[in-house]
């Protein structure tokens, strides 16, 4: 892989990668670190990564780094205490999307990650399975459970309104 191809991958995927990580851990500094780590690992392995599989490679690496960070934080007991800071985003959600994004925060880590990969990045089940190292049927189960949760959450909110 050439330096140009590597730099192109930064332009093409770093925003998506950052968004994916940020939505999972809600901490912009940690999210930036994970993206940095991911690209560092990618640079080290650049010659062994298939050019056509750069994006899955980046997401796989970022996902597992993310899981490591989350586990470490949980072990240290500080992850739950991480404040929900107002991270830099240009997003302007509609009311529905705001509710949905609040709802997804309540999903277990695995379900949240697969739904974000599915909805944000449009990955197929087999691709998500490859990234998360789950089986395809596990991915389906998590997505189905996640959707059910989101639907119930929306239903309860609409009932309140």
């Amino acid at each position: 892989m050439t330096v140009t191809e590597y730099n192109d991958s930064v332009d093409q995927f770093s925003d998506n990668l950052y968004r994916f990580v940020l939505k999972n851990i809600k901490d912009s500094d940690k999210a930036k670190d994970i993206v940095q780590d991911t690209y560092l690992k990618f640079w080290e392995k650049k010659d062994s990564v298939d050019v056509k599989k750069i994006k899955p490679y980046l997401f796989t690496t970022a996902y597992h780094t993310l899981i490591d960070v989350v586990r470490r934080e949980k072990k240290q007991g500080s992850f739950d205490d991480v404040k929900e800071e107002s991270y830099s985003t240009k997003a302007e959600y509609s009311d529905l999307q705001e509710i949905l994004h609040k709802a997804i925060e309540q999903l277990p880590e695995d379900q949240k990650a697969v739904i974000l990969l599915r909805d944000y990045e449009g990955y197929a089940y087999d691709e998500i399975a490859e990234i998360t190292k789950m089986t395809e049927s596990q991915v389906k189960v998590y997505i189905f459970r996640g959707r059910k949760f989101l639907k119930n959450y929306l239903g309860s909110v609409e009932a309140l309104i």
């Binding site: 990668l17 950052y18 302007e92 909805d119 989101l150």
Partner: peptide
């Protein structure tokens, strides 16, 4: 309605 719309976040 449960499909998330990806927000634009710049790294």
């Amino acid at each position: 309605k449960t499909t998330l719309v990806a927000p634009t976040i710049i790294f």
